Computed example of a mutant assay.
Amino acid sequence: MAKNNGSEGRYASPPCMAGEIAPDYFDPLGVDPEQACDVARWRRAERVRLRAERQALSVEVRGAVGTALSGHLRDLLADQFGDMRERVFSAYWPIKGEPDLRPLMADLHGRGARVALPLVEVKQSPLVFRRWTPETHMVRGDWNIPVPPPQAEVVTPEVMLAPLVGWDRDGYRLGYGGGYFDRTLAHLSPRPFVIGIGLQAAQLATIYPQPHDSRLDAIITEDGVQVMQMPGQGEEPQERK
């Protein structure tokens, strides 16, 4: 971060408030403060850019992307888990131009999977997962997103989808900046198998991962599936079209 010449301690750009880094899980002693501020500012700008590009897609393109993603996700679930019957599968309700996977949610429910949706019950706390079925009467939750009602069963996911605003080949995710995803993964035990869902065009060279960022197990775009290699398993992710 550049400083003004002749003005010790003052910055050429506005001071970073690290707005997307929640204080309850961000350790300011764990990373260089100026670097963290630069990363936070860059991420904020990339979110605006990538969301605008996603919103500009036509309805037809979004539909084709959703169909392709659903097909790749079915294949990955079959490869990794076989029969999803009785497994808890956490999806998410599409917002802000995200691919619509609700037909796949209904199909998995019909095949015996226990489908759930994440929601915020307490601010700055891990997400809670409530059971969903096609007959569930939805209510408005945080950010006005439809969620299952309070009386719905609370479950712990074995497989969890994560919406991607951006992503990189190392398996790191650029989300919406609230910190809920990483906070939830740090809380869940055992950790679910986490699949990022996003657009191929949203790939970045890196998201500049910070200590609080959690690595995904796989990433799916309309172009195919990328399964991450965990430490000790090799260097390169495995790609399947």
Rank of each mutant, 00 (worst) to 15 (best):
S7M: 14
S7A: 04
S7T: 04
S7D: 10
G9A: 04
Y11E: 11
P15Y: 13
M17V: 10
P23S: 15
F26T: 08
P28Y: 05
P28H: 14
P33D: 03
P33M: 07
E34L: 06
A36L: 06
A40G: 11
R41P: 04
R43K: 13
R44Y: 05
A45L: 09
E46S: 10
E46G: 08
R47L: 10
R47F: 14
R49P: 02
R49Y: 15
L50M: 11
L50G: 05
L50D: 05
R51Q: 13
E53T: 06
A56R: 15
L57M: 13
S58T: 08
E60Y: 01
A64D: 07
A64Q: 15
A64L: 15
G66V: 04
S70G: 14
S70C: 07
H72I: 01
R74V: 00
D75R: 03
L76D: 00
D79H: 12
D79Q: 07
F81R: 12
G82L: 08
M84W: 09
E86C: 15
A91H: 08
A91E: 04
A91Q: 02
Y92S: 01
P94H: 05
I95R: 03
G97V: 10
P99N: 04
D100R: 12
P103A: 06
L104Y: 12
M105C: 03
A106N: 14
A106G: 09
D107C: 15
H109T: 11
R111Q: 14
A113K: 05
A116Y: 01
A116L: 05
E121F: 02
E121L: 15
K123D: 09
Q124E: 09
Q124Y: 12
Q124N: 15
S125D: 05
P126L: 07
W132I: 14
T133H: 02
H137D: 15
V139W: 03
V139L: 07
V139Y: 13
V139T: 14
R140Q: 10
D142W: 13
D142T: 08
W143Y: 07
N144C: 13
P148H: 14
V159P: 06
M160L: 11
M160Y: 01
A162R: 01
A162M: 02
P163V: 09
P163K: 08
P163I: 11
P163C: 12
V165E: 11
W167S: 06
D168Q: 12
D168T: 06
D170S: 06
D170P: 00
Y172K: 00
R173T: 02
R173H: 07
L174N: 01
G177L: 14
Y180Q: 01
F181Y: 14
D182K: 11
T184Q: 01
L185S: 08
L185E: 07
A186H: 10
L188A: 04
S189R: 07
V194N: 02
V194G: 02
I197V: 07
G198I: 10
G198E: 04
L199R: 09
L199D: 00
A201L: 14
A202S: 12
Q203W: 03
Q203S: 04
L204I: 12
A205C: 01
T206G: 05
T206R: 04
Y208V: 10
P211R: 11
R215F: 12
R215A: 08
D217R: 09
I219G: 00
I220A: 01
E222V: 07
D223E: 07
G224V: 13
G224K: 13
V227L: 13
M230K: 05
Q233M: 04
E235H: 03
P237C: 11
E239T: 03
R240L: 11
